[in-house]
Amino acid sequence: MSSDQSSNKKKNSFTIIKDDSTDGHGGYGVGAISLENMSSVIVDPNENKAYVDMGAMHARSEVERRVKWLPDRNEVPNGKLYWIVWVNVARGENGPYYSGVTGCEIRVDREIRRAYKSMGQHVKHMEKSLKGHIIVDHMDEHSKNLLRDFLIDFNSDMWENSTDELKESLPL
């Protein structure tokens, strides 16, 4: 696969902006929360990478599969750290931008097939991302750097169009 094909494949896997379902037709779904402009980015500080895995939208990302989820972090003491980052995209006067970016911790121990995540935090942060909030302060610096580099690499124009709050939360 050429680098152009690889680049196109990467860009096609990220939800950018879909048609506005509230375009005035007044039909079914008007006023409902839409996840159409949201993508889930997995930040893996263990492997120094970040990537889109839309399976996380339904708790079925690759890192979430084949483990039993526990609500107590202490029950997964050797779990590897991952972040599921909910990234929402909106369109501003200069074009699309990263409008909501919220990170949620998960810990996965493949050896014992157990993992930790706070379902309440995931739901809350997904909703906050939809509303345009930036919540990444609780992430470790290495993971924040991986996330920032991924967002810039994915689309530098969307990064440039993003708020100062996002750029200050994920500084260069």
Rank of each mutant, 00 (worst) to 15 (best):
A50P: 03
S21E: 10
L70H: 10
N48C: 07
R66V: 04
W69T: 05
D20E: 14
E47W: 02
E36G: 10
H25Y: 08
E62I: 11
K68L: 15
P77F: 13
D72L: 08
I84Y: 07
P77G: 09
G24V: 06
L70S: 01
Y28P: 04
G24H: 02
A32G: 02
A56E: 12
L81C: 01
S39F: 03
W83T: 09
G31S: 05
P45N: 04
S34N: 11
M38R: 03
D44E: 03
V67W: 15
L35I: 01
D44S: 03
R66Y: 13
M54R: 13
E75L: 12
A59D: 06
E64P: 09
N48A: 06
I33Y: 12
E36V: 03
K80L: 07
W69F: 15
A32L: 14
V43N: 15
A59H: 13
E75D: 14
N74T: 07
P71I: 00
G55E: 07
G24I: 03
D44L: 03
S40M: 11
W83S: 09
E75T: 08
A32W: 13
H58W: 05
D20I: 12
A50G: 08
H25G: 12
D20H: 05
Y28M: 03
N48V: 02
K18L: 11
D20S: 11
D44I: 00
R60H: 05
S34M: 07
G55K: 06
M38Q: 15
D23T: 05
D44A: 00
K49Y: 09
W69E: 00
A32E: 11
A50F: 03
S40I: 11
G26L: 13
V67D: 11
V67K: 13
G26I: 05
D20M: 09
I42L: 15
V41S: 09
S21R: 13
V76E: 07
V41L: 12
V76H: 10
I42F: 06
P71S: 12
V41G: 08
K18M: 07
A32V: 09
I42Y: 08
R73D: 15
A32I: 00
A59T: 01
V76K: 08
G29W: 09
I17L: 15
V41D: 07
V43H: 14
N78Q: 06
R65S: 10
A59S: 07
K80Y: 00
R65T: 08
M54W: 02
A56Y: 12
E64V: 03
G31A: 04
Y82M: 09
K18N: 04
